[in-house]
Computed example of a mutant assay.
Amino acid sequence: MPRLGERSPEITGAEIVAELVPPPQFEHASFESYRPDHDYPSQLGAVDKLHTFSALWSVQRPGGFFSRSRKVKAELPGIYLDGGFGVGKTHLLAALWHEAPGPKYFGTFIEYTALVGALGYQETITQLRSAKLICIDEFELDDPGDTMVMTRLLGELVSTGTRVAATSNTPPNSLGEGRFAAADFLREIQAMSSNFETVRIDGLDYRRRNASGQATSVEKEDLEHMVTVLQKRHSNFTEDNFGALMRHLGTVHPSKYVKMIRDVEIIALTDVFLLTDQTDALRLVAFIDRVYDAEIPIIASGLPLNEVFDAEMMSGGYRKKYQRSQSRMVALTTGELPPHAD
């Protein structure tokens, strides 16, 4: 039986960097394919702002981005998309990435911090230094250490001409739906805040998704039957005991999770249980992010996956991270993976 717990892939710095592209569902995202809600003019306004931001690449002079000889208005090197869940921030971020010349990189905050963890700070700078654009989706504001590392990293890259675009990590049902995210973002990246223009995007979750939904859990006997069917179909699936998988994730650097699930079509998990260790919980969040980006459905027995974080975690400093992961677990186990994420 194929198991994720038997996969310990090796991955080079170049391979990690090569994975910094938009998820498959945004492979063809463009400003033209974005469908603004005309009840919220800020959505169309955000498209106009990003058009202006991207247009500057076509008018740069040999003197560089900050050249005094430029005949166009100097724009800030950073742009921050501030809005609630489901208003299309990630779509617009990916559309901007597609407009930019290379080299360019697109990843979540967690992916960039994992890159630093895997390569070290100086090697990360070396790998990213030539970038024309760095896109950071779901900028995390709940870990001061990681935020300081990212602020320093972005400061060094911007000083050499790299431009930066970011979104916040506002989850479903978050108080204010991101209304205070901009102030939080600028405060936390204080050393870089003057380099960012904030673009507010109002609106409703266009999927009208029920954020309070429940992850699907099946009886263990039913899961075993499903696995038998998958075997007969020769599907590329894996089956792991949840506890064994959690132990294995502790032995694999999060930067390798993307390679760990490569070519997997379905993930089966047995005997899901409540997590009480925050380190384990954060590893699971990072793993679920990669599974969600790869759009791999999960079938699971035991505790519904969105209930694995204990009450102390859900009331602590990482609750936004856990809330986002819960929403993704619901989508992964119910077959409600959206055609486009936030």
Results as ranks from 00 to 15, higher is better:
Arg200His: 13
Arg200Phe: 05
Arg200Ala: 04
Arg200Val: 14
Arg200Gly: 05
Arg200Lys: 08
Asp202Trp: 07
Asp202Tyr: 00
Gly203Pro: 02
Leu204Asp: 00
Leu204Gln: 07
Leu204Gly: 03
Leu204Pro: 06
Asp205Val: 04
Asp205Leu: 03
Tyr206Ser: 07
Tyr206Cys: 00
Tyr206Thr: 09
Tyr206Arg: 14
Tyr206Asp: 04
Tyr206Glu: 00
Tyr206Gln: 08
Tyr206Asn: 09
Arg207Leu: 01
Arg207Gly: 05
Arg207Pro: 01
Arg207Asp: 02
Arg207Val: 03
Arg208Lys: 14
Arg208Pro: 07
Arg208Trp: 10
Arg208Val: 10
Arg209Gln: 11
Arg209His: 15
Asn210His: 13
Asn210Arg: 13
Ala211Pro: 02
Ser212Ile: 09
Ser212Thr: 12
Gly213Phe: 12
Gly213Met: 12
Gly213Ala: 15
Gly213Arg: 10
Gly213Val: 07
Gln214Ile: 08
Gln214His: 14
Gln214Asn: 14
Gln214Trp: 11
Gln214Val: 13
Gln214Arg: 12
Gln214Phe: 15
Ala215Arg: 05
Ala215Gly: 10
Ala215Asp: 03
Ala215Thr: 07
Ala215Pro: 04
Ala215Ile: 06
Thr216Ser: 00
Thr216Met: 01
Thr216Arg: 08
Thr216Tyr: 06
Thr216Glu: 08
Ser217Glu: 01
Ser217Ala: 14
Ser217Asp: 07
Ser217Asn: 00
Val218Met: 09
Val218Glu: 01
Val218Tyr: 01
Val218Cys: 07
Val218Asn: 06
Val218Ile: 10
Val218Gly: 00
Glu219Arg: 10
Glu219Ser: 00
Glu219Gly: 12
Lys220Phe: 13
Lys220Arg: 12
Lys220Ser: 08
Lys220Asp: 13
Glu221Ala: 11
Glu221Asn: 13
Glu221Thr: 11
Asp222Lys: 09
Asp222Gln: 13
Asp222Trp: 12
Asp222Ala: 13
Asp222Asn: 03
Asp222Phe: 03
Leu223Lys: 01
Leu223Gly: 04
Leu223Ala: 01
Glu224Thr: 08
Glu224Gly: 03
Glu224Cys: 04
Glu224Phe: 02
Glu224Leu: 09
Glu224Gln: 08
His225Gln: 13
His225Thr: 06
His225Cys: 04
His225Ile: 07
Met226Lys: 00
Met226Gln: 07
Met226Ala: 12
Val227Gly: 03
Val227Ala: 09
Thr228Tyr: 15
Thr228Asn: 12
Val229Asp: 14
Val229Lys: 11
Val229Glu: 06
Val229Arg: 14
Val229Gly: 06
Leu230Tyr: 10
Leu230Pro: 01
Leu230Ala: 15
Leu230Trp: 11
